[in-house]
Nucleic acid binder design. Structure first.
Lengths: 205, 205, 205, 205
DNA sequence: GATGAATGAGGCTTCATTCAT
DNA sequence: CATGAATGAAGCCTCATTCAT
């Protein structure tokens, strides 16, 4: 029963529910990241988690739901960290906007693999019931900054809502393209270009 | 597009190779679009094409290669149409840039489904040999416009290369988000917002 | 040997691993024997074993490996029985040689079908990893008798190693020819002729 | 249409029947030898022969019959060459027996691959109708020598018929074992051991 | 709670054979 | 005689999910 998550002998087989769920989530992320979402099998996941097949279904109703949970968790954490960085940037809206950009770029790289898993898998939002409430996402986060700057009279944007979506999308695709081609891994340059674009978009200078 | 799944008696079974290939390509697109790439089966494809299983393998070495061919074809055509629209816009670079945006927006909607198939499926560029040369893509197309405007002294962009990628990404993701939520299908507004962003990005007014 | 293809209701589905493996082995032999190795399908095997397709792959990595296991098992058992008969024949080397011949002939007939399966199918020893150590085979068994008789001064053979291989081969092909033509199923006569040949080969009388 | 048997331009497409049949036979042997009988496909064969799929069925009713024809041809030729060598050996029966052995050993090696194809593939003699008359085979050939020696009073064998089969089998299996293990490719030694065995079997010295 | 042997529908691909030209 | 596109039955194997213990 060798596995990277082998259970130590004598250890109790049962764990608090939350901890088991965590193990499964971690294992899922590891496997999805390693093998790719499509190629990953439930067998891989439970082996990685050091748990029996059936146990998985005690915590998630299906493989699809594990992915969904992973995606939600990833974005929630990401946004929380970004929001914090923005809050720490002070009161100047231009600074806050820059802080948003920098935060995204410093946060993404370590999670590049997760990013792929998160954003590039077509989760069927059809049969996968949407129990949980929609969470605050990247667009909401950027929207707050832009709306704030406008309210303060610093930014000038004709259609803030759409512009926010567009800018947010700019980054996403940029990441994909850049990373997948393993070219231009020049973060400072990327940060600069992105800041410039954002500034121009909100009418700064 | 021969009637799916039926063949008139007495009709010749064989067709010119190019035509059969076309049928398969059409059938593939239809099925991928209807069922989604992951759920689509080869059975679906050949049924749609009104052809036997084995026939498929006379034209494509695998399901993956059908997808690849479809993707290539889609982007090549899209870019060709956009390039044409830009060329028809006259000599003013601002007009050309606007023409690019308008072209994209008028061209995409009918191909929304294909767009999903094309851009959202992780084609394993590993074992799927890359025989054909890289083709001109959307980024190349936008790049030409931006580089042209800069060369003419009309546009001013600090980092044209990255800015092009960013702007291109803006649209892509925007489409995804907008369409997938079936909200804001307000194309004129979308065109206006995008033009504004592009103008700002290249330093117009 | 559970009734093929049926399972009593309420009966537990799971069995001790060894037992399931046995069922599969038995089913495999039955099917290979009935249909021939090439024509046998996995469907046949699992139907015979009263088990689902997937279950097979819990015990063997492929159809090829089932055959391999069957072959190994057959030869190991055969050789064990022959060795026992030889040991029981006493100390006279001529008697032991005769015992070897008789043992082979009494043992083979009931296993004629298995013999075909075992010796006539080209198991690709290429990708079929050879985990287990080489086992004692018929040639080894005969070799021990011949070497023993030589050491005792009873037999006289110029090239014992090759002669052993040759004598062993004599029988094999003889069986094939004789059985496949369903002629000359006269075992006593066959035993006599073989004993004579073996005696002559080792220089007796 | 590249192939090792490409047709020269301007060459007539039709050939005398016998020649076409020869081409197919040659191609079949080449492919069976190269890929192995089981892995060889009809596509391989016709490509090798530089002929269309349908043409094959003008000359052979099935793939199985091609193999059968190849086997027959191989053995007929082999036996003819051996018989000739025996005839050339003079009138002494011991010499003739030795000549038989030597002939087999000099003839086999170059045809090792064909030997495998010929003797190791289970041709279903069930549905493959046996139109042609049985041909003279190796056993017949050896039988004539042994019977001749007995008639001349030179050989003494209790059961000539079975002994012949046994001796013939000795060689066959020996070849398989020896060649397949790429060990003991020491032909002179093999010839000597075989001669010894044959001499002993017919009561010489 | 936890287990893991068992399931079985269904996927992709192969290839001997046919037949209209 | 020759062609080769088309056929389609059949094969092997995968894997999400279940359920008796």
């Amino acid at each position: 029963m060798a596995s990277s998550a082998t259970r130590r002998r004598g250890q109790p087989r049962t764990k608090p529910g939350e901890e088991r769920r965590r193990d499964l989530l971690d294992a899922g992320l590891a496997v999805f990241t390693r093998r790719g979402v499509a190629a990953a099998t439930l067998d891989d996941v439970v082996r990685e988690a050091g748990v029996a097949k059936g146990t998985f279904y005690l915590y998630f109703p299906s493989k699809e739901h594990l992915l969904l949970a992973l995606q939600r968790e990833f974005e929630v954490n990401l946004v929380a960290r970004i929001d914090a960085a923005v809050a720490a940037a002070g009161d100047d809206w231009a600074d806050r906007l820059d802080a948003w950009v920098v935060a995204v770029f410093t946060d993404f790289p370590p999670g590049r693999a997760q990013h792929d898993v998160l954003y590039h898998h077509p989760v069927d939002t059809h049969d996968t019931a949407d129990d949980e409430p929609a969470h605050r996402d990247l667009v909401d986060s950027l929207g707050d900054v832009i709306d704030g700057g406008i309210a303060a009279g610093t930014f000038h944007v004709a259609d803030p809502e759409l512009t926010t979506v567009l800018l947010c999308g700019a980054m996403h695709r940029a990441f994909d393209r850049i990373w997948h081609r393993d070219e231009m891994n020049d973060t400072p340059r990327l940060v600069r270009a992105t800041k410039d674009l954002f500034h121009a978009a909100v009418g700064l200078s």
